[in-house]
Each structure stands twice: as structure tokens, then as C-alpha cells.
Simulated scan of single mutants.
Amino acid sequence: MKKFLVPLCLFLASMAYSQDDLLNSLDSTQVDGKTPVTAFKALQIVTLQSTKMAAKKEFYFVVSHRFGTVKDGFDSFFGLDNATTKLGGIYGVTDWLSVSLSRHTLNKMYETGLKYRLARQDDHFPVDIVGYSVADINSFLEKDQYPGLEFKHRLTYVQQLLISRKFTEKLSFELVPSFIHKNLYNPDIERDNQFSFGGGGRYKITKRLSVNLEYMHNFDKPDFYKNPLSVGLDIETGGHVFQLIFTNSQAMNESGYVTNAAGDWGKGDFFFGFNLYRVF
């Protein structure tokens, strides 16, 4: 535990002493004579991607953590004994295109992604529109369990369209239609192609604090999985955002988060976690 807490404290301290406060400048930059609007300060709402993107040549180092379910109480120290971690990076190739790569301890998942802006909310257009394309590689699968296993069976694909609007200085909202294709699946309980629809919102409480909420409805889920429902807090420090998260899905990749949420809020079965971003 000490090995985890010491680097975390150093990481948070470096965020607090960032040189430039970007909170006000983000919403006032002129592009081609227009004033683009920033609906979200963080790259994620809670677990879902937001329409915010890395700027050209920016690199984000990402650390996400989800502890186990809190329902077991002191038996698992409210989930701390069953934590999962995501480490990754995001690079802005241009102002409208970014690439990402991450590794998740849950299912030993590798994730690659492209995020690309299709339209920008400004003085003349009402919404942000961003595409998000992901390929997941499940390295946890073993041939002993799946004798006919090939590399293609490890792959899952996700395609999402992110449509957001900043309504006021305090309130932003985003819709997220989503399509997920799994090369390996159990036909008795699920389909290879799964559709979901939902979204999330952000309400700013103070200059540096907002509360976020998101929900996705999966049209093809089996009965023992739940639709993901998550709430989070954004804490802005010098232009960077630290996110505290409560969710009924422990997975941090889109395919697992949307289709394999196992927690039940009504039974106190949910997970605590956080997202940390450091931009270079």
C-alpha cells in the first residue's frame, strides 16, 4: 500500500504546482474568427469519453484506478483488496485527432484508440461532435481454456459518437450512441454485435469543482449484467483535473464498462475509484 500511496502523493503535488492556470483561457481561444466552446474540462465524463480532446503535440499520462466492490465491507477493506489499474498515454497528433494506448490489469487488456473531432460548438454551430474508435486486445485468454483460440478471438471493437453541448457556464450534456463487436462471445447469453445508448452531464458547483453523472442503456445485455450508472467529482487544479468516481462497473475500457457492469446500486454493490491526468 505504501508503494502506491507515495507515488500518488508526489503525482498530486506536481499537478497542484502547474505553471499555467488554463481554466479561463480554454473557453476564449479564437479559431478562424470563431469562439469554440469547451463543454467538459476532462477527457472523460466519468468513464465515458467526453468531447474534450488533447491539443496538438500534447501528451497525457493517464492513471485510472477502480477498487473492488464496497459491499463486502471490512472483509475486503471496502474494495481496496481487489483493485484494478489502468496506465496509458494520449497524444494529440493534431487539434482534431488524438491517439491512445493503455494497459488494464482487469483481463490483462490492451486498448488502442483514435479520437477525432467532426464538428465544434461555436458561435455558429450548436454542438461538439467527436468520433471515438477503439480496439481491445484480451491477453488474459489461454489456449488451455479455449483450444481453438486465435489472435482474432482476443479482439473487441468499439465505435462511439460523442455529441455534446454546453448549455450554460455551469451545465454541459453529452449523448453517446455506441456499437460494440466481440469476436469471442457466448451465444447463449449475448450477441457478437451490441448496441447501447446513453450519455452524461457535468454541473459546475464552484470554479474548481463539478459533479458528473453518466448512464448507458445496453439493448443486448444478459439479465445478470446491469446498465452502467456512474457519478463523479471533477477537481480542477491548475488546468488539470482529478476525478473521484463511484460506479457499478469496475471495468475501465468501454467494451467492459458498457456490457459487463455487475454492480447493483440498490444493494450497495458499487466501486470507488479515480482518474488522474498529467499533461506534458
Score class of each variant (00 low, 15 high):
Leu97Val: 14
Asp75Gly: 01
Tyr185Lys: 13
Leu244Pro: 08
Met109Arg: 11
Ile245Trp: 01
Ser102Ala: 12
Asn24Ser: 10
Leu106Lys: 00
Thr237Glu: 08
Ile235Asp: 09
Arg117Met: 09
Tyr116Gln: 11
Lys204Val: 04
Lys204Gln: 15
Pro187Asp: 06
Ala251Leu: 06
Lys204Pro: 11
Pro147His: 00
Lys41Trp: 03
Gln44Ile: 03
Glu169Lys: 10
Ile205Thr: 01
Met216Arg: 07
Phe11Pro: 10
Lys34Ala: 05
Ala261Asn: 03
Leu141Pro: 02
Leu8Cys: 07
Asp128Leu: 04
Leu106Ile: 00
Val231Gly: 14
His181Asp: 03
Phe61Trp: 15
Gln145Glu: 12
Ser249Asp: 11
Gly201Lys: 05
Lys267Cys: 06
Leu233Pro: 07
Ala54Asp: 12
Ser64Asn: 15
Phe197Glu: 13
Val134Gln: 05
Ser50Ile: 04
Phe151Tyr: 12
Leu175Arg: 02
Leu97Met: 10
Asp81Ser: 12
Phe246Arg: 07
Asp75Lys: 11
Pro36Phe: 11
Thr168Asp: 13
Tyr146Val: 01
Pro7Asn: 06
Glu142Ala: 02
Phe125Gly: 08
Thr84Val: 04
Leu22Ala: 02
Pro126Asn: 09
Asn253His: 14
Gly268His: 06
Val99Glu: 09
Gly232His: 10
Arg191Trp: 12
Leu26Tyr: 15
Asn212Asp: 12
Arg66Thr: 12
Gln250His: 12
Lys226Trp: 06
Gln243Gly: 02
Ile163Cys: 02
Asp192Met: 07
Glu169Met: 03
Leu43Val: 05
Phe219Cys: 00
Gly68Cys: 04
Gln30Met: 08
Asp72Leu: 06
Leu229Met: 08
Asp75Trp: 08
Leu244Gln: 14
Trp265Val: 03
Met216Val: 04
Asp144Trp: 01
Arg66Val: 10
Gly113Lys: 03
Phe195Tyr: 15
Phe272Val: 04
Arg66Gln: 14
Phe167Ala: 13
Ile205Asp: 05
Asn260Arg: 14
Thr94Leu: 06
Lys71Leu: 12
Ala262Asn: 09
Val63Gly: 10
Phe61Asp: 13
Val31Trp: 01
Asn248Ala: 02
